[in-house]
């Protein structure tokens, strides 16, 4: 874990509520694992803001954060300009384990989609070619679809709840049309994760992975602000999480 000052090289809106920020700092030899997050310090606010890692380019030292404008912190982040500095605590949490599988599938919902992008790249790098299912409420909220399509994933499917883009329905409806998947990597709102979990009966415990979100205090395991109960005892979403496997989760 380190505190690093990054320089913002781009910060733009992808949709009305979702922004993409690209930041630069020299690569220090330690790349993040897929599914890890950073904790961002924002001027005038006491607590840092945990944001998932959408992409990391070690050649150029570029970190990409895709975040939704929700409260004061992300509102301020969205107003930041190219050239400004951002202090980042990196790399935090326990990310996804890259599992050897015949048919891996990535399922993301809304602002849970960004961490799956870096994950897809990591999987491809070890020869795992995933199918990707991305769910949104409406066409206006679709993000990163073109970015996933540019990767050599086997297929990228988009669902929207109102059918305004891609297939109408939920990611779980799309997931039902696939059989034989033996690794599931997911990130999104908890009801979505729970519905995906119900469709992982045939997936080995360690290969069904779910990334959770919680209000955090410190982000590195010191304050116990984000604890949750699991089958294997109490876990901190910021430290033992955010990714938990099927065998641990208590709904």
């Amino acid at each position: 874990m380190r505190l690093v000052d990054y320089k913002i090289i781009a910060n733009q809106k992808l949709t009305e509520q979702v922004c993409s920020m690209r930041l630069f700092a020299p690569f220090d030899g330690n790349p993040p694992h897929a599914g890890q997050f950073v904790n961002v310090q924002i001027n005038g606010l006491y607590l840092r803001r945990p944001i998932s890692i959408c992409d990391y380019d070690r050649e150029n030292g570029i970190l990409t954060l895709v975040y939704k404008i929700i409260g004061q912190g992300t509102t301020q982040m969205a107003a930041m300009r190219t050239g400004e500095n951002l202090n980042i605590m990196q790399w935090l949490g326990n990310g996804y384990s890259l599992v050897r599988a015949k048919k891996p599938i990535l399922v993301g919902g809304g602002v849970g989609v960004p961490p799956l992008f870096y994950l897809a790249k990591q999987l491809l790098a070890i020869g795992q070619v995933p199918t990707v299912i991305l769910g949104f409420r409406t066409a206006d909220e679709v993000i990163l679809y073109d970015d996933f399509r540019r990767l050599a994933v086997s297929q990228t499917i988009v669902t929207t709840e109102d059918g305004s883009y891609g297939a109408r329905g939920f990611v779980t409806d799309a997931l039902k049309t696939f059989g034989g998947y033996d690794a599931v990597y997911s990130c999104g709102p908890e009801p979505m994760l729970k519905a995906i979990y119900a469709q992982t009966q045939d997936v080995a415990d360690h290969a069904a992975q779910f990334s959770f979100e919680r209000r955090m205090g410190c982000g590195f395991g010191a304050c116990m602000g984000c604890s949750c109960e699991t089958i294997a005892g109490y876990k901190r979403i910021c430290k033992e999480g955010p990714v938990l496997t099927k065998e641990d989760i208590v709904w």
């Binding site: 006491y46 955090m216 205090g217 116990m224 602000g225 984000c226």
Partner: peptide, 8 residues
């Protein structure tokens, strides 16, 4: 949880 709230 939530166990944490921020304030000025």
């Amino acid at each position: 949880t939530p166990r944490i709230a921020e304030t000025n």
